[in-house]
């Protein structure tokens, strides 16, 4: 299990949001009063029902949307909507929106090229990132022909090639088979120094990769803390349209102290 590493006092927080809110004019708020601080190298999971505001939060983090209230800083600098910050990398839920080049190699190179690197440096980044995600054998293939799992790994590789300090993943396991899912889990575990924030309905995935979880519902942070505690709280989870992940069910029964055995059947 990952724990938050300690940092020297004064190191800028990865994410520092105070009273962050967003709403479309004429409609109600989508996000309200969101206050979070995430230290560098933290792994934060974001869970919540559909429509809770997870994607909106991510769009605010990468500057696609401008907040209607509150402040937001990433690595000590205010997020300017529209500005390009290669240290913030976001992998979209719909990978189709991100993959636009004729070959995987070119698509991965797209980001680094836009940061002004020379060809050799770009090529080095591409190979390093592809090696890390294990897709070096796909470099000359066409993204559109790949399976959805392969496409998702390509999309992640394209963002990793930009060497982001903050990696944002929106539903990264949604179309991955078990093999790719395991590969993604191992990839995140091997990351050093990168801050990762993940939104997912795949609660087991959050349990395995994140040291902290935020429960978002109706645009507000409803809970913030250790995944094992928050996600084992049946009442809290049910109140927000979620279920306790299977691997915590035994824990849950122990917490209830109702004398049930580990399969959840009444003892005796």
């Amino acid at each position: 299990m990952n724990t938050t590493t300690t940092h020297p006092a004064g190191a800028p927080k990865a994410i520092s949001a105070a009273g962050l809110g967003f709403g479309y004019p004429g409609r109600g708020p989508v996000l309200e009063g969101v206050t979070i601080e995430a230290a560098a190298a933290e792994r934060v999971g974001v869970i919540g029902p559909n429509g809770a505001g997870k994607t909106t939060l991510f769009m605010l983090l990468c500057g696609v949307l401008a907040p209607t209230e509150g402040t937001l800083e990433v690595f000590g600098a205010t997020v300017e909507p529209g500005a390009f910050r290669p240290e913030i990398g976001m992998v979209f839920h719909h990978t189709n929106d991100q993959l636009i080049c004729p070959t995987v190699r070119e698509d991965i190179a797209f980001g680094p090229q836009n940061t002004g690197l020379l060809e050799e440096a770009v090529s080095a980044r591409v190979h390093a990132a592809a090696a890390a995600t294990g897709i070096a054998h796909l470099l000359d293939r066409t993204p559109h022909e790949l399976s959805s799992g392969e496409q998702r790994l390509v999309a992640i590789t394209g963002i990793l090639a930009m060497e982001p300090r903050l990696l944002i993943l929106d539903e990264p396991t949604s179309d991955l088979d078990l093999r790719y899912r395991r590969r993604l889990i191992r990839l995140i575990e091997r990351m050093e120094g990168q801050t990762v924030i993940v939104a997912s309905h795949d609660l087991e995935f959050i349990l395995e990769t994140c040291g902290r979880v935020l429960l978002l519902d109706a645009g507000r942070i409803q809970a913030d803390g250790a995944p094992a505690e928050i996600m084992a709280d049946e009442g809290l989870m049910a109140a927000h349209g979620l279920e306790v992940p299977h691997s915590l069910v035994a824990t849950w029964h122990r917490h209830r102290g109702s004398g049930v055995d580990e399969h959840g059947d009444a003892a005796g």
Binding site: C62, F84, D97, Q98, I100
Partner: peptide
Amino acid sequence: RARVAARLRGARFGSIRSVSTTAHI
């Protein structure tokens, strides 16, 4: 969404290079 994703990876629509990005999209 494709343009947003491209912009997040540094594409600047309005530059010469963006013609190639537009063609790709």
